[in-house]
């Protein structure tokens, strides 16, 4: 079985956006941490994680159709 999510990466993480981010295939049980690892995103930059616009954790498992966003720490002013 294959699920699909929408993947959105912000700011410096845009460099890691895969070509199929709009329909990113995952296996059931995949967590945010799995995706971060598979895309070679530095874990220290995956600070702010949100799924369907609610803040979640690295360990959170994804569901079919989820919209995952990852925002790095930003601090400029």
């Amino acid at each position: 079985m294959e699920w699909h999510i929408t993947l959105k990466l912000f700011a410096t993480l845009r460099a890691y956006i895969p070509a199929d981010a709009e329909q990113y295939a995952i296996a059931p049980g995949t967590t945010v941490a799995d995706i971060v690892r598979d895309l070679d995103i530095p874990v220290k930059d995956a600070k702010l994680i949100f799924i369907n616009n609610i803040r979640r954790e690295l360990e959170t498992p994804l569901q079919d159709g989820d919209r995952l966003g990852i925002f790095p720490p930003v601090g400029g002013g």
């Binding site: 700011a11 410096t12 220290k44 930059d45 600070k47 702010l48 803040r55 790095p72 720490p73 930003v74 601090g75 400029g76 002013g77």
Partner: peptide, 26 residues
């Protein structure tokens, strides 16, 4: 802490180190 995780281990500066600060964003 909701934005940056554990504050003690978070870096002092973020993506702006690389991307800068543009006037219209500011």
């Amino acid at each position: 802490a909701a934005l940056y995780g554990d504050l003690a281990s978070a870096p002092d500066r973020g993506a702006e180190k690389t991307l800068g600060n543009l006037p219209f964003t500011v």
